[in-house]
């Protein structure tokens, strides 16, 4: 399966009508429409009534659309959200495989009832408890619908009673575990670096870019954006830069020459190029091409709706 390009995942409350009306204009690869924590209990029925409409609004810019549901209200939330055009649902704080299987079962039923291709709705897991982090492998393998898993640092702080601090990252092990298990299972690890992983804040685009880039070098492939201003720097951080692409092309050229001479161990400025270095170059160039393609799709969608 080709790796998905899901660099920026914009979170928008369904109850925030202004935000919903403009959520398709920010260039996000994916939009998560929230029926969960950001929607007050009393506003939930109305939000449910609006979610189908919000889904088609969110799609105008070519974004994939997920709905974050309330796990305890899964049935009602899914009844309202699972319609053609939805990419999948974001499942908050699953802890054991049964949590994932339960959600997958409801999705299967909705696909039948609402005329959605069977097996197409995806699951985006948001890990917010220690138990979920510990069980991440069984959560991923609980359903083939799982395509992305995010570390929800804010929620982890709440459930573990950790006071979020700017000078100290309490979750390097959790992030490492999530990245390794997701990569091993070939699903997408989602996250950003401390400190905004704990307390989302408005920072300059360059600051967000730096933290997202650090996240990429921890092994994350995309980040959840609590604010539209995060989208552009996240898209940028999770896309190889032109300089990198040029560097990787040079690596491939030198290595190719070496192989033609009969050596797969080629020096380049004190570094040694061998098969994994070349493979990595190839992978990064392919990723860059896929990102270009995704950006093209979004630009086309945006244009057709901005006329």
């Amino acid at each position: 399966m080709e790796e998905i390009v899901r660099r920026s995942i914009l979170l928008v409350s369904v109850a925030d009508q202004e935000a919903i009306a403009s959520c398709w204009r920010h260039g996000a690869d994916a939009v998560v429409l929230d029926l969960g924590d950001e929607v007050p209990e009393t506003a939930k029925p109305q939000a449910r009534a609006q979610v189908r409409e919000a889904t088609s609004t969110a799609r105008r810019g070519g974004a994939e659309v997920f709905v974050r549901i309330n796990r305890e209200l899964a049935h009602a939330d899914l009844e309202a959200s699972a319609w053609p055009g939805l990419t999948g649902i974001a499942l908050p704080s699953p802890q054991v495989a049964a949590d994932v299987r339960d959600a997958a079962e409801i999705l299967a039923a909705m696909e039948q009832q609402h005329g959605i291709p069977v097996g197409s709705l995806q699951l985006f897991l948001l890990l917010g408890t220690a138990k979920g982090v510990w069980n991440v492998r069984e959560l991923i393998y609980a359903s083939p619908r799982v395509t992305s898993v995010a570390l929800d640092g804010t929620q982890l702080c709440r459930t573990l009673g950790v006071l979020p601090r700017a000078d100290f990252d309490p979750f390097p092990y959790a992030a490492g575990r999530l990245v390794i298990e997701c990569t091993a299972a070939r699903v997408q690890p989602v996250g950003i670096s401390h400190p905004v992983s704990l307390v989302p804040r408005l920072l300059s685009a360059e600051e967000i870019h730096g933290l997202a880039e650090r996240g990429r070098n921890m092994g994350f492939k995309g980040a959840i954006c609590p604010h539209p201003s995060w989208v552009e720097p996240c898209n940028r951080a999770f896309t190889p830069t032109l300089e990198q692409v040029e560097f990787y092309r040079e690596v491939r050229r030198l290595f190719g020459e070496g192989v033609a001479r009969g050596s797969a161990s080629v020096p380049m400025n004190g570094r040694m190029l061998d098969v994994p270095v070349d493979e990595r170059a190839k992978k990064m160039i392919t990723l860059w091409e896929r990102c270009q393609r995704r950006d093209g799709e979004k630009a086309t969608a945006l244009q057709s709706h901005s006329g």
């Binding site: 092990y173 992030a175 990245v179 390794i180 990569t183 070098n217 921890m218 092994g219 994994p276 992978k283």
Partner: peptide, 24 residues
């Protein structure tokens, strides 16, 4: 190492220990 960086899609020399979990 390089194979690990390839699998994770991370850069090799980033100024922090991007491999600490796996090594640990």
């Amino acid at each position: 190492g390089y194979d690990m960086s390839l699998d994770l899609g991370v850069e090799m020399f980033v100024g922090f220990d991007q491999f600490f979990y796996g090594k640990g």
